[in-house]
């Protein structure tokens, strides 16, 4: 009985995924190896690896890859640290905690493309408030062009992403923290552990699997960073804020060099697969042990 039902239970989920992805994946694999470019015409001759090579010939693609790496790493790192600190701070009850929790999740409900648009509004001169705010905390009058000057535009992009996604880290880590039974701390107390020691040796190891799942999903999404770029900088000035996803979107969708864009997407996915597989193996280990 169990033997049948176990497969029966996974089948609907697997089927709907396959049903909706098999054609797109097959099609995109084919597109990667043929000429599929609106400007070049309606024929689709086989071009071998040309589409893949074409990406590597473009310095913008190469730069976008590195930018994607350090963008996503720094965004997720900041979100992780902030989310962790916030979860620790919010762990014990206090008055108004419930209301704050509701407030904290609000950014998750705003589309990233809209968040990007609004951060653009905050930082643009002369209408934005960024310089006014900076003048409050910084001596003198601040006149930074936040959306055009390096490194400020990177900082703005990262802040926008952090604003949106820290709640995600926060919630998941808080859940992990909340699940640690008091008995463990009591045991650590009895052993004479200092707060810092009990954090390092009790809290961290126990919360690590939760952190990993949050980091994995955030990292995958951050690596595909598109919406905020799309609405905040459009990749500019020049190509200074092109992420790989934005580059591929431009090539494939805006200018309709679909063959090249799709081939790039496949290469990008393979890279991402390696990273996430490595993460997932670490993720699965504690889950396996849990059983």
């Amino acid at each position: 009985m169990d033997r049948h039902i176990r497969w029966l239970l996974v089948t609907p989920a697997v089927l709907i995924v396959i049903a909706l992805t098999i054609f797109p994946l097959g099609f995109s694999l084919w597109v990667s190896f043929v000429q599929y470019d609106f400007t070049l015409g309606p024929e689709h001759p086989w071009v071998g690896l040309d589409n893949f090579v074409e990406n590597w010939k473009d310095p913008v693609w190469r730069a976008s890859l590195w930018r994607t790496v350090w963008f996503s790493l720094s965004m997720v790192a900041i979100e992780l640290v902030l989310g962790m600190l916030l979860a620790l701070a919010m762990l014990r009850p206090f008055r108004g905690r419930r209301a704050l929790m509701t407030l904290f999740v609000i950014p998750l409900f705003i589309s990233p493309v809209v968040v990007g648009g609004f951060f653009d509004l905050f930082v643009r001169r002369p209408y934005g408030i960024a310089n006014q705010l900076a003048s409050w905390v910084w001596p003198g009058t601040v006149t930074i062009d936040f959306s055009n000057d390096s490194p400020w535009l990177y900082i703005v992009l990262i802040i926008a992403d952090v604003w949106q996604w820290t709640p995600f880290m926060f919630i998941i880590i808080l859940a992990g923290l909340a699940a640690i039974p008091d008995t463990l701390y009591e045991a650590a107390d009895l052993d004479g552990a200092k707060p810092r020691q009990s954090f390092l040796f009790v809290t961290l190891p126990l919360v690590l699997p939760v952190v990993l799942i949050a980091v994995t999903f955030r990292l995958i999404d951050a690596a595909k960073l598109f919406d905020i770029i799309f609405s905040l900088t459009r990749g500019g000035p020049g190509t200074d804020t092109y992420t790989t996803s934005y580059y591929l979107y431009q090539q494939g969708f805006e200018f309709f060099h679909l063959g090249q864009g799709t081939a790039g997407a496949w290469m990008f996915m393979i890279m991402l697969t390696f990273v996430s597989y490595w993460l997932v193996r670490r993720l699965l280990k504690p889950l396996e042990e849990a059983a």
Binding site: A13, V17, T21, F23, P24, L25, F27, S28, V31, T216, F217, I220, D221, K224, F226, T244, S245, L248, Y249, G252, F253, L258, G261, T262, A265, W266, F268, M269, L272, T273, S276, V280
Partner: peptide
């Protein structure tokens, strides 16, 4: 299941 989330949208959006 996880890998469903790895593909950049541009690869599949046209198909």
């Amino acid at each position: 299941f996880l890998s469903q989330r790895l593909m950049p949208p541009i690869a599949v959006i046209i198909p």
